[in-house]
Simulated scan of single mutants.
Amino acid sequence: MEVNDVQLTGRVSGDPSERELPSGDALVTLRLVVARGGGRPVDTIECACWSASARRAAARFADGDRARVEGSLRRRFFRTPGGPASRYEVEVRRLVRDRR
């Protein structure tokens, strides 16, 4: 069985950023800093909130808040002045405050 479910708990790095795309779609993005544990380095993971509920939830977060993200891993392709590029990000399905 194939599954693409991501669950992350970490700290929001910077305030979430809201923008409207040329297509008219709204998007809120945020970065989540997640420790690997055991004194290892942290990972900074881009998260994209497309649904209205995820965008509303993201708007309530600020730099340094602890959050739990549930979603799916997505690879996004785009063009840059240097040519084609891609990036992995988490497409957020659910975003809640982590109270730990």
Rank of each mutant, 00 (worst) to 15 (best):
M1D: 11
N4H: 11
D5R: 15
L8H: 03
T9L: 10
T9M: 13
G10D: 00
S13M: 10
S13F: 06
G14W: 09
G14I: 08
D15I: 15
D15M: 11
D15K: 12
P16T: 07
S17W: 04
S17H: 13
S17D: 13
E18K: 02
R19D: 04
R19S: 13
R19Q: 15
E20M: 10
L21E: 04
D25V: 01
D25Y: 03
D25G: 01
A26C: 07
V28Y: 00
L30K: 02
L30N: 00
R31A: 14
R31L: 13
L32Q: 02
V33A: 10
R36W: 07
R36H: 14
R36E: 15
G37Q: 12
G39V: 02
G39S: 04
R40K: 13
P41G: 15
P41C: 03
V42H: 10
I45M: 01
I45E: 00
E46A: 14
E46P: 06
C47I: 01
C47H: 00
C47M: 00
A48Q: 13
A48N: 12
A48G: 04
A48K: 07
A48W: 05
C49F: 01
C49G: 05
C49D: 04
S51K: 10
S51T: 15
A52V: 09
A52P: 05
S53L: 12
A54P: 03
A54C: 05
A54I: 03
R55H: 10
A58M: 04
A59M: 08
F61H: 07
A62N: 12
A62P: 00
D63R: 06
G64E: 06
R68G: 08
E70I: 03
E70R: 05
L73W: 10
L73N: 08
R75C: 10
F77P: 04
F78G: 08
P81D: 12
G82N: 14
G82F: 10
G82P: 02
G83D: 08
P84A: 13
S86M: 06
R87V: 15
Y88W: 13
Y88A: 08
V90G: 00
V90S: 01
L95C: 09
V96H: 09
V96R: 15
R97T: 12
R97I: 05
D98N: 13
D98V: 11
R100G: 15
